[in-house]
Nucleic acid binder design. Structure first.
Length: 314
DNA sequence: CGTTTTTGACCGGCGC
DNA sequence: GCGCCGGTCAAAAACG
């Protein structure tokens, strides 16, 4: 899927409503000095406005580039996943039948590729090849995660248990076991597990009391710089945009978070005829993220007021 | 003072 | 039945 075809990311806000050449003001020779001073003041404020608009323009360009990059990364990831799906779906069906009754170990999630986290299989003979492939895909996943601002929920589109795993790079010195995904979580337990020296933290979604979603966070035993967050269940409320202030969107840089698991469905797993709806959802999410950026709203306001001024002049 | 985190106790599933 | 283990509960502490 092509990013430009999927989303029109051009943000032509028309933030330069003033033409390069402003119509020269013709001041009559007989005008009073008071009027002249007034004109000078207006010229001054006009140049200030022009500077402001230039700033806004460059901001607009930056935002456009940022969006383009996000879409590019998303498209690359999506293409990759589609390839994987077409290649692996029969295999997954087979392994699903072999899922053990025993609950999964956290490291099993680590081994499975994007969105394919599933139970442990008993077929140990094919495990080695499988594991090798998984490691490669995990690396690719990690790289793409970094492209998508290092955080992106992954949904199991094949397993109806709605379990997804997210890998978050963190400082090894950071022992907080927190993964900021926009939702509000309440920690209800912590446990040291057998096969991992670092403790596992258990979280419940605290946005809505009835929300059944749970999250487990544990540092990866293989790569301590990675946090492994395992999500179970589906949020029964609106997304994180309405709840928590994402620190990344408040500072100087703005981040567009693509929540691909909202509602428990992977966007990537949707049929093509459903994508138009998802386009709207994505656009809404982007718009929502952008409107949280005070700089963006200021730029938008400036653009609109500029356009209004232009229209009133003509 | 309400909310969140911490942490030891408890529970249930599983293997032996 | 017993022990192990992962998951959850709930009281106390910490925090804002």
């Amino acid at each position: 899927m092509d990013g430009s075809s999927f989303l029109d990311i051009s943000l032509d806000l028309n933030t330069n409503p003033f033409p390069a050449k402003l119509p020269k003001k013709e001041v009559s020779v007989s005008a009073s000095t008071h009027l002249k001073r007034k004109w000078l003041e207006q010229d001054e404020s006009a140049s200030e406005l022009r500077e402001e608009l230039n700033r806004v323009n460059s901001e607009n360009m930056k935002l456009s580039e940022m969006l383009a990059r996000v879409c590019e990364s998303y498209n690359a990831l999506h293409n990759h996943l589609e390839k994987l799906q077409s290649r692996q779906s029969p295999e997954i069906d087979q392994t699903d039948k072999l899922i053990k009754k025993r609950k999964q170990d956290p490291d099993d999630f680590l081994g499975f590729p994007i969105g394919l986290s599933s139970g442990k299989t008993e077929n140990s003979s094919s495990n080695e090849d499988h594991h090798h492939q998984q490691q490669q895909m995990e690396q690719q996943h990690e790289q793409k995660n970094q492209l998508l601002s290092c955080k992106r929920p992954v949904t199991d589109s094949f397993n109806k248990a709605k379990v997804s795993t997210v890998y978050v790079p963190t400082e090894t010195s950071d022992t907080s076991l927190t993964v900021k995904d926009g939702f509000q979580w309440r920690k209800y337990g912590q446990k040291v597990t057998r096969d991992n020296p670092s403790p596992r933290a258990y979280f419940r979604c605290s946005f809505a009391p009835s929300c059944p979603v749970k999250k487990k966070v544990q540092r990866s035993a293989e790569d301590p710089s990675l946090l492994v967050a395992t999500y179970e269940g589906t949020h029964n409320h609106l997304g994180p945009n309405a709840s928590e202030g994402d620190a990344t969107s408040q500072g100087g840089s703005s981040t567009v978070t693509l929540d691909l698991v909202h509602g428990g469905h992977s966007l990537l797993a949707l049929e093509k005829n459903e994508r138009n709806t998802m386009q709207e959802v994505l656009i809404q999410q982007m718009a929502s993220s952008l409107t949280k950026d005070s700089k963006f709203t200021a730029a938008l306001a400036a653009a609109i007021s500029g356009r209004l001024m232009e229209q009133s002049r003509t």
